[in-house]
Amino acid sequence: MPPVTLTVNEKQRTTEVESRTLLVELLRDHLDLTGTHVGCDTSQCGACTVLVDGRSVKSCTILAVDVAGSEVTTIEGIAGPGELHPMQAAFKEHHGLQCGFCTPGMVMGALDLAARSADPSEAEVREWLEGNLCRCTGYHNIVLAVQEGARAMGGAS
């Protein structure tokens, strides 16, 4: 088993994984970062979305060995202890989550959008979230949250 070295939430981590181990398995099973969730086996729910070098990626679609050397950011890594990132705060303020299972993927996906568009329209947000399923919220409040979170970030990440 080859050791894989990558940066996760700004810490360098070296882990031995099988060549078929998925990034989401590395995160959940090896690094105990259980905030990244698994909701499907066909790469269609987005619950597993993380940032790899700043871009949102479904971590169930990518092998751990393929992200060697990359910077991975998960939901656990976007704010300091006891703090909320502006995007997380916007989700709370607008009740953009209910059961919370899709939420980490939604937030990570939204961060990528916010980095590209500082003031996304409703239609833009809805299109962007095409790959993230939520069964609880009907998306209404998620859309409001993402718009406000993006504005609060003002183009920063």
């Binding site: 970062l33 259980t34 905030g35 698994v38 909320l84 997380q88 303020e93 989550l97 919370g100 299972f101």
Partner: peptide, 19 residues
């Protein structure tokens, strides 16, 4: 009232059965 449970869900600290 903004939800008490959100802090853990939003920071990836929810504890679902698979966790």
């Amino acid at each position: 009232v903004r939800r008490k449970e959100d802090a853990r869900f939003l920071t990836g600290r929810g504890r679902y059965t698979d966790d």
